Computed example of a mutant assay.
Amino acid sequence: MRKTLYYIYDPLCGWCYGAGGAVQALADSTDIALQMLPSGLFSGEGARPMSEDFAAYAWSNDQRIEQLTGQRFTERYRHEVLTDNQQMFDSAPATLALTAVALTARSREGHALKAIQQARYVDGLDITQPGTLASLLHALGLEDAAKLLAQPDASLIAANSARIAQAQALLAQFGARGVPAFIVEMNGHRQLMSSNAALSNPQTFVDQLAAA
């Protein structure tokens, strides 16, 4: 029987960016159904202003992620994003954009997340701005999602809230601390997977999941 993997993430989570290789490998697997859920970790009460201390902490953490996973964090990101004290550390806009993708082109959510992450960590763009996010969606050919994001309606807001609620319920159920979190389901049974291999060796992670 085909397995379902719930991938719980936040678009502003550097470790989720680091797990991008594993997520791509999972998306390419025909034996595993990937269901992505945003956690809302850095939105709402989890959002915060960008400060010098937080920027220094983030950059230090980013260097650890790059060393472990090989994912790039550029100097442009460091100077254009982390030193911008006017820019909030708030994943709510990007989360809403990804929900718009999930509603209009569900199979493309992983691609959209990757593009948003690269826009921030490589290109140094401000992905807390709806205009930036809409441009990214247009560039991916996700016109319906871009239109939905430009004029969010009640159905988009409700779907976004429901996805976050489902993610948080799963995190609470398994006592998972933070994201990325991976929960595999088969025959009605769910199991929390360690994310260590997802960060250091994506193919090993996929193999572990296949054997779970």
Results as ranks from 00 to 15, higher is better:
residue 1 M to C: 07
residue 6 Y to R: 13
residue 6 Y to T: 02
residue 7 Y to D: 04
residue 9 Y to L: 14
residue 9 Y to A: 06
residue 10 D to F: 14
residue 11 P to Y: 07
residue 16 C to I: 08
residue 17 Y to W: 15
residue 18 G to N: 06
residue 21 G to N: 06
residue 21 G to K: 09
residue 22 A to M: 04
residue 22 A to R: 00
residue 23 V to Q: 05
residue 24 Q to V: 05
residue 24 Q to R: 15
residue 26 L to I: 05
residue 27 A to V: 02
residue 28 D to F: 00
residue 31 D to R: 03
residue 32 I to L: 11
residue 32 I to Y: 06
residue 36 M to Y: 11
residue 41 L to D: 00
residue 44 G to L: 14
residue 45 E to Y: 10
residue 47 A to T: 07
residue 48 R to L: 12
residue 50 M to R: 14
residue 52 E to H: 12
residue 57 Y to A: 10
residue 57 Y to Q: 11
residue 59 W to I: 15
residue 59 W to V: 13
residue 59 W to R: 12
residue 61 N to G: 13
residue 63 Q to K: 15
residue 64 R to F: 08
residue 64 R to I: 11
residue 65 I to N: 03
residue 65 I to W: 08
residue 67 Q to C: 05
residue 68 L to I: 15
residue 71 Q to T: 03
residue 71 Q to H: 03
residue 73 F to P: 01
residue 74 T to I: 13
residue 74 T to G: 07
residue 76 R to P: 01
residue 76 R to V: 10
residue 76 R to I: 13
residue 76 R to G: 03
residue 79 H to I: 03
residue 79 H to T: 07
residue 81 V to C: 04
residue 84 D to G: 03
residue 85 N to D: 07
residue 86 Q to I: 05
residue 89 F to K: 09
residue 89 F to A: 10
residue 89 F to W: 11
residue 90 D to N: 14
residue 93 P to M: 10
residue 96 L to E: 15
residue 98 L to G: 03
residue 98 L to N: 06
residue 99 T to L: 13
residue 102 A to T: 13
residue 104 T to G: 01
residue 105 A to I: 02
residue 111 H to A: 11
residue 111 H to S: 08
residue 111 H to M: 15
residue 112 A to D: 07
residue 113 L to P: 10
residue 113 L to G: 02
residue 114 K to I: 07
residue 114 K to N: 10
residue 116 I to Q: 10
residue 118 Q to R: 15
residue 121 Y to V: 12
residue 122 V to G: 04
residue 122 V to W: 14
residue 124 G to A: 06
residue 125 L to Q: 14
residue 125 L to R: 15
residue 126 D to W: 09
residue 127 I to G: 04
residue 129 Q to G: 04
residue 130 P to G: 04
residue 130 P to N: 06
residue 131 G to K: 08
residue 133 L to P: 01
residue 135 S to A: 15
residue 136 L to S: 01
residue 136 L to E: 00
residue 136 L to T: 06
residue 137 L to Q: 00
residue 138 H to F: 12
residue 140 L to K: 05
residue 142 L to G: 01
residue 142 L to N: 02
residue 142 L to S: 02
residue 144 D to K: 00
residue 144 D to S: 12
residue 146 A to E: 01
residue 148 L to H: 01
residue 148 L to R: 13
residue 149 L to Q: 01
residue 150 A to L: 14
residue 150 A to T: 08
residue 153 D to Y: 10
residue 154 A to C: 02
residue 155 S to H: 10
residue 155 S to I: 13
residue 156 L to C: 06
residue 158 A to I: 09
residue 158 A to S: 12
residue 161 S to P: 00
residue 163 R to A: 15
residue 165 A to T: 05
residue 168 Q to P: 04
residue 169 A to E: 13
residue 170 L to F: 08
residue 173 Q to G: 02
residue 174 F to Q: 02
residue 174 F to Y: 12
residue 174 F to C: 06
residue 175 G to W: 09
residue 177 R to D: 07
residue 180 P to F: 13
residue 182 F to Q: 03
residue 183 I to W: 10
residue 184 V to C: 14
residue 185 E to A: 01
residue 186 M to F: 06
residue 187 N to G: 08
residue 188 G to V: 02
residue 188 G to E: 12
residue 189 H to D: 11
residue 198 A to Q: 09
residue 198 A to R: 03
residue 199 L to P: 08
residue 199 L to C: 09
residue 201 N to A: 15
residue 202 P to W: 00
residue 202 P to S: 03
residue 205 F to H: 00
residue 207 D to A: 11
residue 209 L to Q: 03
residue 210 A to K: 02
residue 211 A to P: 06
residue 211 A to S: 12
residue 212 A to Q: 07
residue 212 A to T: 09
